[in-house]
């Protein structure tokens, strides 16, 4: 399993647009990709779940990736998050 943390820079946090893009990105991998904020967990393949984290600018999120292609998924998802959030 791979894990990393990130502080959200985007003004609106995980809003509809990046959530939608993240769903697309995450769905292209076999691995399970989970985003956590405080005690809340979200499956990154589910847009409502991601949005309901209510992750805002300045919040720390933790991303857990586990599965066969976790290395590729880690690179792609961490790049995506840095760029879009």
């Amino acid at each position: 399993m791979k894990e990393f943390s990130y502080i959200i820079k985007d003004e609106l946090g995980i809003h509809a647009r990046p959530a939608g893009l993240l769903v697309k990105k995450a769905s292209s991998f076999q691995s399970n990709i989970t985003i956590m904020k405080d005690s809340k967990k979200a499956d990154s393949r589910k847009i409502f779940s991601l949005m309901s984290l209510g992750a805002k600018q300045g919040d720390t999120i933790t991303i857990q990736i586990s599965g066969e292609d976790e290395d590729e998924a880690f690179t792609a998802v961490s790049e995506f998050i840095k760029e879009n959030l």
């Binding site: 959530a19 939608g20 589910k46 847009i47 409502f48």
Partner: peptide, 16 residues
């Protein structure tokens, strides 16, 4: 326009 793409994803949301 992205909102309509997001709507499509919402319709595919597994929880929903």
């Amino acid at each position: 326009a992205m909102i309509f793409e997001v709507h499509q994803m919402m319709l595919d949301d597994q929880d929903y």
